[in-house]
Simulated assay, not measured.
Amino acid sequence: MNDTITTPVRLEVLGIGMGRTGTASLKVALEQLGYGPCHHMLELFSRPGDAVRWQARARGEAVSWDELLGGFRSTVDWPSAYFWRDLVRDFPAAKVILTVREPEAWYDSISNTIFKALDQPLPQQDDAARGQRVMAKDIIVERDFNDRPHDKAHVLARYAAHNAEVQRTVPAERLLTYDVGEGWGPLCRFLGQAVPDAPFPTANRRDDFHHGPGRQRD
């Protein structure tokens, strides 16, 4: 098991949309376009020690990007999306993608997948799953949503505020606001890549989430 990768970070694409906005599909798409490996929440199952390091960084401790994202060319999804301001600042040459989704559909999805999973008892026999669950509850529920995951109005307000702050902060020429339902076209134009001769990937639909081994996915 490769617990920690400490090779230098050279991130070229930052996916900073909240979970359940097509981040798993974007991960696959970026890897198909040559921006792999792409970091996603799922990586914590092969790098279980990283969960505590992400939490340490969230507390303000000195945890480097080399420790957390070494070897990756792109990143999407939580936990990295929580640190989007730092990433945008620390990787000024990287292009930035804000994945978005119709708010009501997004809320329905996150409340029936991530929030529901994080309400369940912690797994006792799977250290990787337990560590990931604890980290996800800390960073997503407690920090990003102020420990109010069942307050729909608050969750939707936080989602809107996140998207608005990204759009206000990141220079327009560096940012793509993107719905994965738009397919390859906008993504490839933004990245200066040819459109692949393959359908745009679809990954981690709601049924896939619930049939997985208790993992927090998007």
Rank of each mutant, 00 (worst) to 15 (best):
M1S: 14
M1A: 11
I5H: 11
I5Q: 15
T6F: 11
T6W: 13
T7K: 12
P8H: 09
V9R: 04
V9A: 09
L11P: 00
L11T: 03
L11D: 03
L11R: 03
G17E: 01
G17S: 07
R20C: 08
T23P: 10
S25M: 02
L26T: 01
K27S: 11
Y35G: 07
P37I: 08
C38H: 05
H40Q: 12
M41E: 00
S46C: 11
S46F: 12
S46Y: 14
G49R: 11
D50T: 15
D50H: 14
D50W: 14
V52A: 15
Q55Y: 10
A56F: 10
A56T: 10
R57Y: 09
A58L: 07
E61G: 13
S64H: 08
S64F: 06
W65I: 07
D66G: 13
G71F: 14
R73P: 11
R73I: 12
S74A: 09
T75G: 14
T75M: 12
T75N: 13
W78K: 09
W78A: 02
P79V: 07
R89C: 12
R89G: 10
V96G: 04
I97E: 01
I97P: 00
R101C: 06
R101K: 04
P103Y: 02
W106Q: 06
Y107V: 06
I110W: 06
I110G: 04
S111V: 13
S111E: 13
T113Q: 04
I114L: 09
L118K: 03
Q120S: 15
L122M: 07
Q125L: 13
D126N: 10
A129C: 01
R130E: 10
Q132T: 15
K137Y: 14
D138C: 13
I139Y: 02
I140P: 01
I140R: 01
N146V: 07
P149Y: 02
D151I: 03
D151S: 08
K152P: 11
A153I: 10
V155A: 10
L156S: 10
R158V: 10
R158H: 08
Y159I: 01
Y159F: 07
A160M: 05
A161C: 00
H162Q: 08
Q167Y: 07
Q167S: 12
R168C: 10
R168F: 08
V170L: 02
V170A: 01
L175P: 02
L175A: 03
L175F: 03
L176P: 01
Y178Q: 01
D179A: 09
V180A: 04
E182S: 01
G183V: 01
C188N: 06
C188Q: 05
R189L: 15
F190Q: 04
G192A: 10
G192P: 11
Q193W: 05
A194L: 10
V195Y: 11
V195S: 13
P196T: 04
D197W: 11
A198E: 07
F200M: 04
T202F: 10
R205V: 12
R206H: 12
F209Q: 05
H210Q: 13
H210L: 14
H211R: 15
P213I: 01
Q216V: 11
R217G: 09
D218M: 08
